[in-house]
Design a protein around this nucleic acid. Sequence first.
DNA 1: GTTCTAGAAC
DNA 2: GTTCTAGAAC
Length: 390
Amino acid sequence: MEQSVHYLVLLRRFSCRLCSELSEEVGGIWDSALVSALTEDWSNQVQNTGEMPTFWLVSEDESHKPIQLLHYHTHTLGRGPETRIKDQKCSRQQVELRADCNRGFVTVKQLGSNPTSVDDVVVGKGNQVTFKPGQKLYMVNRLYPYTLQFREESTPGGASEEKSRPMKRPHQRDAHEEKDEDKEKSCRVSAPSCSNSAARPEKTHTPEMEPAAHWSQGLKVSMQDPNMQVYKDEKVVVIKDKYPKARYHWLVLPWDSISSLKALRPEHMELLKHMQRVGDRMVQQCPSSTKLHFRLGYHAIPSMSHVHLHVISQDFDSPCLKNKKHWNSFTTDYFIESQDVIAMLERDGRVSVKDGTSELLKLPLRCHVCHKEQSTIPKLKEHIRVHLLS
DNA sequence: GTTCTAGAAC
DNA sequence: GTTCTAGAAC
């Protein structure tokens, strides 16, 4: 217990250091409001991939159905049937909203004369501010509060308003929402505290709701969640793996929507190099970087959509590491080093995965240090402790 | 990706 | 009997 507390204290100090030092080193930032603008290429990529992440503007007092805010579409709102606001102080065109689903915020421009605000910040006529999950938008005079919810829209082109309701998002559930305390202690990586009630999933699933987003889309949700983000800059975001397979296990994800290694093209080279640099920095800033060995790489056939670079310490000391698939995905050629992916892209212009790679997950359990075969996961975990202590 | 659990392995 | 795995379901 004492050790866990100590560990958490270290982590918090580490996070603070990361905030200042890492930002300096790689030009990254920690306040998502400061994220600089990306190009509009993303919009095209979304259309090409058929993936349509969208925000939903949710009336806090549930006076009307949530309003879908499609990526890069402008939405003018104010007094009228859509919001059911009848207050004369509210203009019919009170605000213009523009969602950037990839970077996780909506731009709010005040068009009306009376003040629109986001939390305590008054936008001001003609001005615009960012609005993120966890914040509250007050349409006018600190009245008519709204929150943002984010989810993947599974029907490209957009669902009709009638059937489009925010749904529960299982992968937005944080570790601390399930058997919280035990998990936090046992996984040795503290889940960040979540004050973002607006972005939390619905607890119940009513018949009129659409089915939940597929689990494989979970990273796209997590990477947008400010409570999950450990680092971010204009190109990438880093989150802690929700089910870490070692004492330190981060994921570096590009803001650009790249579904898998297969989708990588030469134009992604600089992005991949940047992802590796950020991963390297994560390691360098880690208080245990001198004691633990780290590897940076990609799963050849990842379960989760959206390219993500694993930055993982090689202790594999985690209760979340439970089965052969977990083990072999990090200790066989199923795990492709970041530098090898970059080299392959440089050489071939593509990243290919060898036939039979999925079979690597079924290989016998073998210690990653001494290569001795172990019969079961519990025995393997007992065995690797020996290397950890030596 | 995780959880759950039947049944294999011990 | 218990432990552990592997496949289904999510």
